[in-house]
Design a binder for these strands. Structure first.
Length: 622
RNA sequence: GCCCCGGUAGCUCAACUGGAUAGAGCAGCGGACUUCUAAUCCGCAGGUUGCAGGUUCGAGUCCUGCCCGGGGUGCCA
């Protein structure tokens, strides 16, 4: 038996699918046009209906013009499930034509045994090179909850894709270029010259503050001025606003000049920019590390790295007659979309231009078959425009490929506070990601002290960190990413419900069994013990375990990590019920004890592997 | 104005992309601990899936039109 064949036998859905497909082809030979019929096998929701079911009869009834139960009957008559399942007959058909299957206990044991391998049954897919846009920090800005989502969700996608054998390249598209950055550079320069800031000691907090000041200073209150003029609010108000507007225009002009210097490689300005870059990225990568997100310096690919290609990109668009002039600017028009601005009337480029260059690099240089953007949902229109334009311009065509690489936006919603408005501090500032992690750790330490006072201080700190990060990340991953989600400390750190801590706790309980088993000297030999799936709780556990490989695949397909969370939560719950009803160490027979130990071990490994897909680490104790 | 995304139990969320009686957790009520870590488990109660039509053997899921909320919308990124 080949490895591939051994793997193929693993998933009951596929195994049953093959048998059902054969039965359908046999039963309706000559009556069905065009290829194989999907046997529509799915695990049964309700154990009363069996373990698996085929829903194929109903849609077939339509094309065949027969009553669905007749179709089901004809399928069952031709069905050869061999020794996989208990015998099938008319009583296997229910409702409008569901065909219910119950696996034999021995078959179930064999399948679980096959799952119990190093890869846990996860099948390597046809290998692709996949570029994932993650994190997306901006220079001189603290990371906030928006970056948390891109980082955590993006990293989870990457890990899941890697688990399936793909080559994943993370790209942190750092916002490190353009007028806003030049504004901060200009401000940093003037502050340093005035002796108000020490360039050797500058922190991200300093830069964040300068950013806000600079932005404030260079945004002219022309609306205010117009209002004052229109409503004649007095010479004093008018003079103040005129001064503000004049000052802002001056600051803006200065920033533009700084940008020109930066672009032309002025040594002093470039050094200041480099300072900005180093300070920001140092803090960003440190935060990624604390979050156990696998994003490092080598993944950084800032907007600045495309600065010399923007003219060329636009030239290609012109050569291909895709870009046209409109009001002095250059736009690309795509069917059903707003025009995409790729060059301003003053000759400057826009973020669409940079993103087009990035698509080209990712596909042609990095060799991406699939490019995924884990970015805020508000960018949806922007990405539609970029993708459409990139495809027309040939930027999405991988060298030697037959078709364009897929470009996908995996959007996520906002993080809201308990009041339902964007998550901010009381004073209306964005919450710093590093502060968020600090607070999560403090809260986790308090809870840990309450629940398990015997732990040593340093172990508690370690546990608090792991639990805090798990709670924070899991909260972000466990609901459908497209929706906004409500940030709630108590809920994410709760040990009941669909939370990180609950899953960690389940894992810890299993590990505890093995410590105890070792103390009692009864741990040997469970790895290869015969599995005895007899009790209903054992059976349910086995059935849930078998769904793991398909779950990994579905997360990779849909880019929805919350499916993994839902699965792991169900696994943990099913295990807890098993654990409640089926004594392990005190099992009645040696055979049963070893079998259950093996189930425990397998469950722990699936939990750990699934959490690893999400970028969450496990613990031995908590 | 146009486009995109949401609307499911009092609250926070699921529902394997059209399948059987819409499921969890919290909050409420009632049970099970000299434990394999009770940070758990069992039970009760809680629903016109925003509204109205339509397609289908079957709709929370698909199509149309409304209502509510959020977001986006050529010279910021």
């Amino acid at each position: 038996m080949t490895q591939a064949h051994a793997q193929q036998r693993l998933d009951p859905v596929e195994m049953l699918g093959e048998r059902f497909a054969a039965a359908i082809a046999d039963a309706f030979a000559g009556k069905l046009e065009g290829g194989a019929v999907d046997p529509l096998i799915t695990p049964s929701k309700n154990p009363q209906h069996g373990d698996y079911q085929s829903n194929a009869a109903m849609p077939l009834a339509k094309t065949l013009g027969m009553p669905p139960r007749e179709v089901a009957k004809a399928i069952v008559e031709k069905l050869d499930l061999g020794d996989l399942a208990t015998p099938m007959d008319e009583s296997s058909i229910a409702g409008p034509g569901f065909i219910n299957v119950r696996l034999k206990p021995e078959t179930l044991a064999e399948l679980v045994g096959e799952l119990d391998r190093p890869g846990l049954g996860v099948k390597a897919e046809e290998q692709q090179t996949i570029v994932v846009d993650v994190c997306g920090v901006n220079l001189a800005k603290q990371m906030h909850v928006g970056h948390l989502r891109s980082t955590v969700i993006g990293d989870a996608m990457c890990r899941t894709l890697e688990k399936l054998g793909h080559t994943v390249i993370r790209q942190n598209h750092v916002g490190d270029w353009g007028l806003p950055i030049a504004m901060v550079v200009a401000k940093l320069q003037s502050e340093a010259k005035a002796g108000r800031i020490d360039l050797g000691k500058v922190t991200l907090d300093d830069l964040d503050r300068l950013y806000k000041v600079a932005k404030q200073e260079s945004s002219a209150d022309t609306k205010g001025l117009k209002a004052v003029e229109r409503f004649q609010l007095g010479p004093k108000a008018q003079a103040e606003l005129e001064a503000q507007v004049a000052g802002a225009n001056e600051a803006l002009e200065h920033a533009k000049q700084t940008l020109v210097k930066l672009q032309s490689g002025d040594a002093e300005i470039v050094a200041l920019w480099q300072k900005l870059y180093d300070v920001t990225m140092g803090a960003c990568l440190e935060t990624c590390k604390r979050l156990q997100a696998n994003i490092t310096a080598k993944d950084s690919a800032g907007e600045s790295s495309f600065r010399d290609q923007l003219g060329e990109i636009v030239q290609i668009l012109l050569d291909k007659k895709l870009a046209e002039e409109d009001g002095g600017a250059l736009v690309v028009r795509n069917e059903g979309l707003e025009p995409t601005l790729v060059r301003k009337s003053d000759g400057g480029y826009l973020y669409a231009t940079t993103d087009l260059a990035a698509v080209r690099k990712r596909v042609k240089q990095l060799g991406a078959d699939r490019v995924i953007y884990c970015v805020d949902a508000r960018q949806a229109l922007h990405f539609k425009q970029v993708f459409a334009t990139a495809k027309k311009a040939g930027f999405a065509h991988k060298i030697g490929a037959n078709e364009d690489s897929t470009l996908e936006h995996a959007p996520f919603g906002m993080v809201l506070g308990e009041d339902g408005r964007p998550f901010k501090t009381r004073s209306g500032e964005n919450v710093k990601l590093s502060d968020l992690i600090d607070e999560a750790e403090q809260r986790a330490a308090v809870i840990s002290t309450e629940k398990n006072p015997d732990l040593a201080g340093d172990e508690r700190q370690k546990i608090a960190h792991t639990v805090a990060v798990a709670a924070l990340k899991y909260a972000d991953l466990s609901s459908d990413r497209i929706k906004d989600y409500v940030f709630d400390w108590d809920r994410m750190l709760a040990f009941e419900g669909n939370t990180g801590p609950y899953l960690l706790y389940t894992y810890v309980r299993i590990r505890s069994i093995f410590r105890k088993a070792e103390e009692q000297g009864i741990v040997a030999g469970y790895e290869s013990a015969a599995l005895a799936i007899n009790e209903p709780e054992e059976k349910q556990l086995a059935l849930v375990l078998l769904r793991y490989p398909a779950t990994v695949a579905s997360v990779a397909r849909t880019l929805e990590p919350h499916r993994m969370c839902g699965y792991l939560y169900e696994l943990a719950g099913t295990f807890s019920r098993f654990f409640e009803h089926c004594p392990v160490l005190k099992a009645e027979t040696d055979v049963s004890r070893l079998s259950r130990l093996r189930l425990c071990d397998l469950t722990a490994r699936v939990l750990a592997d699934g959490l690893d897909c999400l970028g969450i680490q496990t613990l031995e104790r908590m």
